[in-house]
């Protein structure tokens, strides 16, 4: 039961990550790969606060999320000034650079990771309580984003993605909209990081590498980029499939690459055969949101 609860928490956290990433790339059309680093910022900041201060956990999580937002604004404001295409490569550099920093600083625990994060809830109810929190937040995230993109705000985002020049010439401030979308998406990733930290009590820099970018991207692509529930489908599938292989009881030296091969093959197949994803509308109307 404990094991299933942990898997559930992990899936909920990844739903939050995938949904917020989808807001940024699927709806906002902002090509970034650095989502895991904002997850990391949320995780590290709230973890450090939990170790060194007596702040209540929710406050630590919010501060972590705030830091992720600030960092995302710094990145987006400098990269988007050049061009939207540049963001992709700048975000990659940002992620690698910050990870390198984390690995080399003493107070973040270096490459060995940050441990000793105090348990805030103890006893048998710990996992169920965290599961409830994570699931509620995941549902809230998915529906909040859905509500956002359905209303007038979403209409503006769609228009911006369709024709940015015409959009700006109608009086819309495309740059500030992009910054806001980016900051919201990354702030949500920071919250996911905070929950992760408090439940697992240990984080290491390896969890936030480029491979993680590919994994979250895969969840979004597989489920359907630019759809409200696509990221949910993607996150559940991608986290459930490796669990299924676990039952084959292969040795870890074969298991890990096998799982990797399955993921990457899935992505490649979808990229070419169904670029819009599982829930994506292959029709003409929403095509610009897909991975065409």
């Amino acid at each position: 039961m404990e094991y299933l609860g942990t898997i559930g928490i992990l899936i909920a956290i990844y739903i939050i990550l995938a949904a917020s990433y989808n807001l940024v790339i699927g709806y906002g059309g902002l090509a970034t790969v650095a989502h895991p680093i904002f997850f990391a910022i949320g995780a590290y900041v709230s973890g450090l606060l939990a170790i060194h201060t007596t702040l209540p956990p929710p406050v630590s999580v919010l501060v972590g999320s705030g830091c992720a937002m600030l960092a995302s604004l710094l990145l987006a404001a400098s990269a988007l000034r050049v061009s939207g295409d540049y963001l992709l490569i700048a975000s990659l550099g940002f992620q690698l650079g910050l990870l390198q920093l984390i690995k080399n600083l003493a107070f973040t625990g270096g490459p060995g990771g940050l441990g000793g994060i105090p348990a805030t809830i103890v006893g048998p109810s710990r996992t169920p309580v965290y599961l409830a929190i994570a699931v509620v937040l995941a549902i809230a995230t998915v529906f909040a984003i859905r509500a956002l993109v359905r209303g007038p705000y979403g209409r503006a985002i769609t228009a911006m993605r369709d024709e940015e020049l015409a959009f700006s010439a109608l009086g819309r401030n495309a740059m500030s909209m992009k910054l806001v979308i980016f900051a919201i998406g990354c702030g949500i990733a920071g919250i996911a990081g905070g929950i992760y930290t408090f439940y697992f009590q240990y984080i290491s820099p390896d969890q936030f590498e480029v491979l993680q970018s590919a994994a979250i991207l895969t969840m979004v692509v597989l489920g359907g980029m630019g759809t409200a529930f696509g990221p949910v489908v993607g996150a559940v599938l991608l986290l459930a499939i490796p669990q299924a292989i676990t039952f084959l009881q292969l040795p870890p030296s074969i298991m890990a690459p096998m799982q990797g091969i399955i993921f990457t093959l899935l992505v490649l197949v979808f990229l070419f055969l169904r670029p819009a994803g599982i829930l994506g509308d292959t029709g003409r109307r929403r095509r610009s949101a897909g991975l065409t």
């Binding site: 790339i25 090509a31 790969v33 295409d85 992709l88 480029v210 491979l211 590919a214 991207l217 895969t218 692509v221 030296s253 074969i254 890990a256 690459p257 096998m258 990797g260 091969i261 993921f263 990457t264 093959l265 992505v267 490649l268 990229l271 670029p275 991975l291 065409t292």
Partner: peptide, 29 residues
């Protein structure tokens, strides 16, 4: 298909990862 930059990024990165996983499976780490 007039794909966007992100698609090219995913394709090239994932292709690399795929190759690397296959090689890991064959040659170990």
């Amino acid at each position: 298909r007039k794909s966007g930059n992100l698609t090219f990024f995913i394709f090239t990165l994932i292709l690399s990862e795929f190759v690397i996983y296959v090689i890991t499976l064959v040659f170990g780490t």
